[in-house]
Design a protein around this nucleic acid. Structure first.
Lengths: 199, 199
DNA sequence: ATTTTTATTGATTGACGAGTCAATTAAAAT
DNA sequence: ATTTTAATTGACTCGTCAATCAATAAAAAT
């Protein structure tokens, strides 16, 4: 019963199903058939709309990234002081949504895939560049030349706590992780510049 | 030409080959045949000695972990002040060896596998617990009650910079990463305790 | 010398999974 | 009314790969 305009609906269903299935299995060892079944269609149709497995994964990752981006933007839109905006960025990174098992799984596997797939590497670079740029923008007015180093540290902290979560889904929920990052951030903000700082 | 006592030699060859192959492919999508070929034997023999693919991977990971552990111990054995010992631990984590593409790949994939495999999760827990315990032991005499939080932050920083390395094999070599972690550590050490610290 | 044990592999099995294709359905366009 | 076009799938092809096994070879033990 071909109603016209199915394409976007099917694509969305497949992307959602992909994320769920990755979470369920905890790896990228997910068959197109599993995904298609969960999305309520045949595997042939999945291939029809996406061309191949890789492209389905890529679309799923792009979706996750765009949701994350929207969260950050939303959080930033209500904060106006640099410190508050930093907090907004950090908290957005650990929002419950990003912290769901499926999403963490997707990220983990995405890191792995970025060593093989050009497309994955590019996407991941976009994420990292955006995070860095966001942090830098707020840090500069606060600490000037020390901003790049601190930004790198904060970014690493975020990724590190994220990974830690991949391991034990229980301990350290988002709140705790972001509190710790913030705590560390404040220490870095108030620390006096090191003496031998000139390159 | 069965010389006796081949088993340990073959096992070692397989473990080494596994790490190389994981690095080469950037993923766990490595066939037993590839590993066996690189180790100079038939895939049947690999199965004969290890039983199955999973066990080969596990042995490879155990090996990486044990090398890392030895590095840490070696570095600690020549440092005696808490601050110096902390530096030793951190630098050991970013030693050139651990930072080789193969090893990073293995770690990445190991994180992923830890969501599926009980054995992988257990191994990873050992690593994390040991790191935490090592850090804690040196931090306590320096900052007392703040030690646990700082230890968690340092651990997250290490993992975070590690991951960042999975992405771009070029920028930020081990030296730079450990310098940054140390920098951040010093800030945390000198920061004054927060006021509302009592839980 | 013959038996036992260890090492070793080629060939095979069996399962699974990505991607293709021809065929079917029904809406839309003419 | 017929033609075109989008949606949809079951069945099939083709590869790949983990795991098994029977067979061989040679050192060790008797």
């Amino acid at each position: 019963m071909p109603k016209i305009g199915m394409e976007p609906i099917r694509r969305k269903a497949l992307v959602d199903a992909t994320i769920v299935e990755i979470g369920r299995s905890g790896s990228l060892d997910v068959t197109v058939s599993q995904i298609a079944k969960r999305a309520g269609m045949s595997s042939a149709l999945a291939h029809h709309y996406f061309g191949g497995k890789d492209q389905i994964f890529m679309a799923a990752m792009r979706h996750i990234l765009s949701v994350y981006g929207a969260q950050v933007r939303a959080a930033l839109s209500v904060s106006h002081q640099p410190r508050a905006r930093l907090e907004a960025i950090i908290r957005a990174s650990f929002e419950a949504g990003n912290f769901r098992g499926e999403v963490v799984s997707a990220w983990m596997n995405f890191y792995v895939q970025s060593q093989t797939s050009e497309g994955a590497k590019r996407l991941l670079n976009i994420y990292q560049a955006r995070l860095r740029s966001n942090l830098l923008h707020e840090l500069r007015p606060l600490i000037g030349p020390r901003a790049p180093d601190v930004a790198a540290n904060v970014a690493a902290l975020i990724d590190g706590y994220y990974i830690r979560h991949a391991l034990r889904g229980s301990l350290s929920d988002g709140r705790l992780a972001s509190d710790r990052v913030l705590d560390c951030l404040d220490m870095m903000l108030t620390a006096q510049p090191k003496s031998g700082e000139f390159k």
